[in-house]
């Protein structure tokens, strides 16, 4: 009987490893690289969390916390969701905006059960564009892992591409320094509507070549992109 119990325990733990990766804590050395030529990332939130938590899911509506991050770069809502889920969270590792073609490096130690890694940040200039990875399973095996990351649209605000607000529900783009001197002004607005209200792959900034007028305040030769826009490098110790 005792032997049988032991066998069952061994079988269960083998299954657990196969299905849900490491159960014990790991040291993770993480680098987020902004691969773009002309986009800034707002303060990053990164976390190791359990399987019931996720920052976003494509094809699903954005949560209010994701919306606040994607429209204005405010990560406080996502941080509190993660904290409530006992996640291991790192806030703002770059100490502000992550400039084009630069990296930020930080350490994260995950507790047992927090076997998924996520991160996100808003893309500037944009209305509700963001970069992120949601629920990436942390490998059990030590090594260096690379994930190329796409730009998403939260689907919560029309991409009018003109100066405005980063507050949820208010139109226009937030324009913190140094962006205020890099983009145009007096744009009439690219669009008034957003037809896909689920999180989806961003169609890209349109922009125009008129810094003092035109439809968009975005410079079409500087602040456009193609995926991938970021690289996540994770060294599992």
């Amino acid at each position: 009987m005792k032997f049988k119990t032991l066998l069952t325990t061994v079988a269960t733990s083998v299954t657990m490893i196969a299905v849900s990766s490491a159960a014990s804590a790991q040291d993770l050395d993480i680098t987020v690289t902004n691969l773009t030529q002309g986009l800034y990332f707002t303060p990053i939130v990164a976390a190791a969390h359990n399987g019931d938590t996720q920052l976003f899911s494509t094809g699903m509506a954005a949560s209010p916390e994701l919306t606040a991050m994607a429209e204005g770069g405010d990560i406080s809502g996502l941080v509190s969701v993660l904290t409530n889920a006992d996640a291991n969270t790192v806030e703002n590792p770059a100490g502000g905006l992550l400039a084009p073609s630069t990296s930020t490096n930080f350490m994260l130690m995950n507790d047992e059960g927090n076997q998924y890694l996520s991160f996100s940040a808003m893309i500037l200039p944009s209305n509700d564009g963001f970069v992120g990875v949601s629920r990436w399973m942390i490998p059990e095996e030590a090594g260096t892992y690379t994930v190329y990351v796409n730009a998403y649209d939260a689907g919560t605000e029309a991409n009018d591409e003109i100066r405005g607000s980063g507050a949820v529900g208010e139109a226009g783009m937030p324009v913190p320094p140094p962006l205020e001197n890099m983009i145009g002004m007096n744009g009439t607005g690219v669009t008034m509507s957003e037809t896909n209200m689920a999180v989806h792959v961003h169609r890209g900034n349109l922009g125009d070549d008129d810094m003092m007028a035109g439809k968009s305040d975005i410079n079409n030769s500087v602040q456009r992109w193609l995926n991938p826009v970021a690289k996540l490098t994770v060294v599992v110790k």
Binding site: N159, V201, H202, R203, L226
Partner: peptide
Amino acid sequence: DDGLMSSVLTQAHRFDNP
């Protein structure tokens, strides 16, 4: 919207991978 005047598509129809 991006300068192809004979296009029936607008900026809304643009896409990026995936």
